[in-house]
Amino acid sequence: MSGPRNRPVPSDAAGASSPAARAGAPDLAPPAGGLVVAARGIHRVYEVGEEKVHALRGVDLDIRRGEYLAIIGPSGSGKSTLMHIIGCLDSPTEGTVAIDGVQVADMDETRLARIRNERIGFVFQAFNLLARESILENVALPLQYAGVNRRERIERAQAELESVGLGDRLGHRPSQLSGGQRQRAAIARALVTRPAILLADEPTGALDTKTGDAVLALFEEIHGRGTTIIVVTHDPDVAARCRRTVRIRDGLVEEVA
């Protein structure tokens, strides 16, 4: 699991490599007090037939750069909805969200896609690797959408896979790997674009305890390099390893000491 660490790690890695530093985004604001997530008064209402379901009812949440945060809560609490909004997969019905200093609440799908690509790395419970592609191609895929040329894509994907200890499995299909290896490949894919946030949704949910621990150990290591990590989980053991925990209950957030 301990592959060669050939990536230079600045002390403030997330800040130094933050895409917020990239020019071009018109609504780019200076990261307010180093906040990587600044959510204000978030409401999310779904219309299910005639009925309106309030998944989030006015959530305020600040997450500072370099935090390792757990979002916990029972199913149906609005936990997933909050994760989708932080991950720019969904937009709030009401309220504002700044990701890495960029207001995203009113963005269209194309611009949200760019934000996801540049600033957010997803890790899913079910790994969500493309079955037909090798893990090298899987890890290189976000760079393709970022417009990086093929040669650099392959080089960077390879380096990322080496850093999670899969340097000798580059050409393997996901089906040829164990669950733990797949999740590490997925983590490599999430990190390959140097995102501001690593957003993990039940990352150990599909793994046995031992493999899950190894994945969490890898998270510690990534956090140690300065990356902000947000883990959405209902597993108290997973939450216990995070530095800060917030709980969602009935669409509202509360801090857990």
């Binding site: 896609a113 996801r116 976000p142 674009t193």
Partner: peptide
């Protein structure tokens, strides 16, 4: 559908 979802999560624009 799921593959499309994954690609979108990784940053594929609707145009892509």
């Amino acid at each position: 559908t799921r593959e499309i979802g994954i690609r979108k999560a990784l940053g594929a624009t609707p145009a892509a």
